[in-house]
Each structure stands twice: as structure tokens, then as C-alpha cells.
Design a protein around this nucleic acid. Structure first.
Length: 358
DNA sequence: GTCCAGGCGT
DNA sequence: ACGCCTGGAC
């Protein structure tokens, strides 16, 4: 490559004019970003879009303005506030990380020190080091992989291409303003160099893009073929008394770990019994797609006729469905409104009465 | 409806 | 390499 240094220069000039304004950011060229806010936003942004993160970030920083406040929070309240964001291991690691940092007194200011903390891996450690501590680290997320694959027309499919893309991104990273450069690359990937239909016409570094020159920008990065998701099924029981509902906290490890849930069978063929005797009535089906399988969950409700064998009875006045992950929220909504007209009308008798999604 | 994007831990 | 969730694009 002739002069790689010109690419970051031109990208930073674009970022100075077009940086997205986000509440966890300082303006381009600024310094003194709060490591706590950078860390919190970056963890929320793992696998999650900016649009989805905004309200959660405001809520968390209002409830817990500093890492010490978060370190002192109840686990259950953090899990409840995280509900809906997904990937709940992030919330458990968030609390563990906050407590470690509170013990240390402050966030480590190097990539290596940050990467030793729970929930902080290669991407997040480099991002915090660059953005909050001005370290010239190479920040590689999915946006950066896509931008770099196109700039250099890398044909190797992901994930095998990752080391190659990281090395190319490292050659681009400038010694000055590494945090702004990282955010510029991610803004470019999120707003212009998008996965489908990239807006090459307004790209600030289009003269340097080899994929565009070859007419293959929209086809990169290539990806290894993904495999089909297995279909699984199970039953979830929403048990009621006069004034309470039966819930449980799922085990910390595994699917929906540590979240609030209604008792259910296993979803892989393991066949747990109902959590209590009750006049169980099947209401219908809720469908949900996870990373690695699709789930059809039969929803049953009933009035308990004896003490439950598992779970806890929570008074309906203190039960907040927004503290449930998406799947369980769907089941709750179905139980509130079991017969939507669209699914009920003309349903043949051999089909489930209220089959629907949502 | 279906497809797809997106980091960390193990 | 796989397990982990949701929302937005099509």
C-alpha cells in the first residue's frame, strides 16, 4: 500500500464534521471521556444497536452515576433493569466487573489490565483503552471488519479472516487520536459502509476502497455458510393464586441465565413436571428464535391447588413483566390475552387454538 | 413472515 | 467452535 497514513487522516476529517452525537461520547478531538460511561456503553453495545442502547444507558447512569454506585447495587435490580437487552451474561459480568473496579479504586488504564476484567474481551478492552485513555490500540468490531475487508478487498470468509482483518486494521490505526479513529471507523460502518447497499457515493475514503474499484463492495466481507437451527419445543407454566404469580430465577449458567422466568420444561427434550398441582389449561404457543435453535413454547396457566414444588409466589402488585426477558414477556402477554381474533377465527380444530408470535 | 447483525466466555 | 437474545431490514 502506498501511503496508508492518508486513510486515517481523511477519515478523521470526516469524523470531525459527521460524528454521531451520543450521550456517552465526548465531541471529536475532545479528551477526558469518563471510563465508567465508556465501559458501560461499550458493554451495552456488544451485539446491540445504538438505538436499542440509548434508553438503557440513560436509565443506568441515572440510577448509578458512578462505578461505585453500580458496585453497590442489588444483582436482582441490575438484572431487572437489563431485561430486554439480551445476552444476560453481560449483566452478570457488568456487576462483577463494577465490584472489581470499585475494589481496585479505578478502571485499569491499559488494554491488558482492562481485558482481565469480567465481560471485557479483545474488542471492549481496546475500545476503552483508546477512547477513555488515548492508547493507540486497534479496535475491531463487526463494523471495522466490514470496512477493512472492503478497503483491502479481503476475500477470505469470516471468521477465518479475522486475524488478517485485525492486522490490516492495526496498520491503519494512527498514534494520534486513536479513540476518535476507532469511533470514526465504527460510525462509517454503521452509517455508510453498511452490510447491504453501502452508500459508496458519500463515503469519505472511497478513493482508497479496493472492493469498490472491483465492484464487489456489497459482497464483502464473505462469510462461511451457517448451519440450520434445530427446532425445539417445551411448555411454560404461568401459575396463579388469588393475588400472586409463580416465578423463578433461572440458574446463572446457560440459556437466559440469571433471568426472571416462569417455570418450564427443559427445551431440549428433558421433561420436567409442572411446578405445582393446578387446573392447567393450554392457551397457545409462543415462538422464539435464539442464536442456535428455534423454540415453540406451549403456554399453560392454572390456579394453584397446593404449595408449589419450585419457584416463588410474587404478589401481582409487585410483579413487573418488564423485568422478564423477551421470551417470557411473550408468554405473559399471551396469558393476558389468550384468544387474539386473527388466530382464533376459522382455526381448524386440529390446530392449536391460539398459535401466534408475540 | 424470514434473514441478518453483533463480542465474550468456555 | 459453539452457546448466548433481540430488533431492524427486507
Amino acid at each position: 500500500m502506498r501511503d496508508m497514513a492518508v486513510i486515517p487522516q481523511e477519515l478523521l476529517a470526516w469524523y470531525d464534521r459527521h460524528a454521531r452525537v451520543l450521550s456517552w461520547r465526548t465531541p471529536p478531538g475532545g479528551t477526558g471521556a469518563d471510563p465508567y460511561r465508556v465501559w458501560l456503553s461499550e458493554v451495552m453495545l456488544q451485539q446491540t444497536t445504538v438505538a436499542a442502547v440509548k434508553s438503557y444507558f440513560e436509565r443506568f447512569t441515572t440510577l448509578w452515576p458512578t462505578v461505585h454506585d453500580l458496585a453497590a447495587a442489588e444483582d436482582a435490580q441490575v438484572m431487572a433493569e437489563w431485561a430486554g437487552l439480551g445476552y444476560y451474561a453481560r449483566a452478570r459480568n457488568l456487576v462483577a466487573c463494577a465490584r472489581t473496579v470499585a475494589q481496585l479504586g479505578a478502571f485499569p488504564d491499559t488494554r491488558e489490565g482492562l481485558a482481565a476484567l469480567p465481560g471485557i474481551g479483545a474488542y471492549t478492552s481496546a475500545a476503552i483503552a483508546a477512547i477513555a485513555f488515548d492508547r493507540p490500540e486497534t479496535v475491531v468490531d463487526g463494523n471495522v471488519e466490514r470496512v477493512v475487508a472492503r478497503l483491502f478487498a479481503v476475500e477470505t470468509p469470516l471468521p477465518a479472516a479475522k486475524p488478517e482483518l485485525t492486522a490490516l486494521a492495526a496498520r491503519l490505526t494512527p498514534q494520534a487520536r486513536p479513540g476518535d479513529f476507532a469511533q470514526a471507523m465504527m460510525d462509517l460502518g454503521a452509517t455508510i459502509c453498511t452490510p447491504r447497499s453501502p452508500a459508496c457515493g458519500i463515503c469519505p475514503i472511497i478513493p482508497h476502497c479496493q472492493a469498490r474499484a472491483q465492484g464487489i463492495a456489497a459482497e464483502l466481507p464473505r462469510k462461511a455458510p451457517k448451519k440450520a437451527k434445530p427446532q425445539r419445543r417445551g411448555t411454560v407454566w404461568i401459575g396463579l393464586t388469588e393475588d400472586a404469580v409463580l416465578v423463578e430465577t433461572r440458574p446463572d449458567k446457560g440459556l437466559l441465565g440469571g433471568t426472571l422466568a416462569f417455570p418450564s420444561t427443559g427445551w431440549d427434550g428433558s421433561d420436567l413436571p409442572p411446578p405445582a398441582p393446578a387446573d392447567w389449561q393450554e392457551l397457545g404457543l409462543v415462538r422464539h428464535v435464539f442464536t442456535h435453535f428455534a423454540l415453540d413454547l406451549t403456554v399453560a396457566t392454572g390456579r394453584l391447588t397446593a404449595t408449589p414444588q419450585r419457584g416463588n409466589l410474587v404478589p401481582l402488585g409487585r410483579f413487573d413483566p418488564s423485568a422478564l426477558p423477551g421470551l417470557m414477556r411473550k408468554a405473559w402477554v399471551l396469558a393476558q390475552n389468550p384468544f387474539p381474533a386473527t388466530a382464533r377465527d376459522n382455526a381448524p380444530p386440529w390446530q392449536t387454538p391460539a398459535t401466534r408470535d408475540r
